[in-house]
Design a protein around this nucleic acid. Structure first.
Lengths: 226, 226
DNA sequence: GGCAAATAACTGATATATCAGATATCAGAA
DNA sequence: TTCTGATATCTGATATATCAGTTATTTGCC
């Protein structure tokens, strides 16, 4: 329950619990296979089990946990096979979004993407992974948002939540980040040349190709077992 | 909670409530904008508000309802704009699934799709819309399932739930059904000719093109307002 | 010692009571 | 008559108690 009172936005307990748990994922405090104990967690958060359960149902729908009735609530692993699936889905959807957004992106939008990619390079040069990550998200968001398809944005966003919040072996791989920047530049170049189809195909078949990115993925997530 | 006891599969109350509500949608007993009253519904179903709320949280995540805190729970409309969004997403994902599944489909899989399409024609000839609908789902499921991407299947499936459970103006439009069958045949022909790329493009840009299908969509769903 | 049945403990699922925000209605003042 | 504040009602959100399936441990028999 979000209420605005004099500029304050009040969140329901359910939402606050959800945010807390999401943070736990982002901080890698919840590991695959781990159980979330209702009594203990509710006690720790100082709320009843009810909003906790509400939040967990949402997290289950989003793929983060599995509620195994009367047995326990388990943090889902993220096996390579599933990462492969995510890559396929995101590739197909972002590719579609890029084509759809091209008319409304225009030169200004392409310049914006180009600028974001350059800032990604600067972040790498400065060793600032958080900034790199932020600009990377914004690069993709530029055309996904411009596509104007809220459902597509939601679906892609949720898969990315799973990809990025999952505990990983390494914080970053410079080679991968450099490679991403080169790929982004390729996409921008296609767009600037007025060829969204080639940009979309490159985005789908290279940038979001599990096969192409596999060597980095394995380093980054480790060879996670299901 | 699904438990198997001596072959019986027992469902939790939450699941049963969810199934009931889904049925209500399928039977068009729940209309856009309508409210679902917790006390009344729980009383009617003979359960407490808890499993009802659990089910509603899931339905909200799936887009069927909006839980407006402390105000009410509203059945979501399905405006044409959203249908358009769904068409784009499904088109992109099914297209991707078709390419991915082609190697494992093989001649047998293509024949199966062909057979399903012929049965769709027979259903039309016999005026049996339920059978048509069933074979239509199976036609698409054939390559979506063969793609082996559970997440893609789940995402597409959920969007189709929304499309097919939504109340509509007309039960069926023979012209659209005939058109679908022709389009399916086109896809099958491309596949049989060993050209999944053309099949995928046709699937995405014709079969799942909102623009191409718009005249039927408007007749079928009515000109629903948001 | 091994196995099966009984019992205890654990844990999530559900029911009920209470709370709390939103909305409608009423009463009083201008 | 209109407006504002107070009160009542409605409805979902949350807390607490209890239930019920699952798992672990104990007990008794062979």
């Amino acid at each position: 329950m979000k209420t605005a009172k004099g500029g304050l936005v009040l969140k329901s307990l359910k939402e606050q619990v959800y945010d807390y748990l999401r943070q736990q994922f982002q901080k890698h405090r919840l590991q695959p296979g781990e159980t979330i104990n209702m009594e203990a967690t509710a006690g720790k958060l100082g709320v009843s089990k009810t909003p906790l359960r509400d939040a967990l149902i949402q997290l289950e729908m989003e793929g983060f946990v599995t509620i195994s009735p009367r047995r326990g609530i388990f943090v889902n692993p993220l096996p390579l096979a599933e990462i492969r699936e995510f890559y396929q889905v995101i590739g197909a959807l972002e590719s579609s979004a890029l084509i759809e957004s091209f008319p409304s992106l225009g030169p200004a939008g392409i310049r914006k993407m180009d600028g974001l990619n350059r800032r990604m390079q600067k972040a790498i040069d400065a060793g600032d992974f958080d900034l790199f990550y932020e600009k990377n998200l914004l690069f993709h968001d530029a055309f996904v948002a411009a596509c104007g398809n809220g459902n597509l944005t939601r679906i892609v966003g949720n898969l990315k939540k799973r990809l990025y919040d999952f505990p990983r072996k390494r914080q970053w791989i410079k080679e991968w980040e450099q490679s991403s920047i080169r790929e982004h530049q390729e996409i921008v170049d296609f767009l600037a040349a007025g060829d969204p189809q080639s940009a979309a195909i490159f985005l789908r078949d290279v940038h979001w190709s599990f096969k192409v990115q596999e060597k980095f993925i394995r380093k980054y997530y480790g060879d996670a077992k299901a």
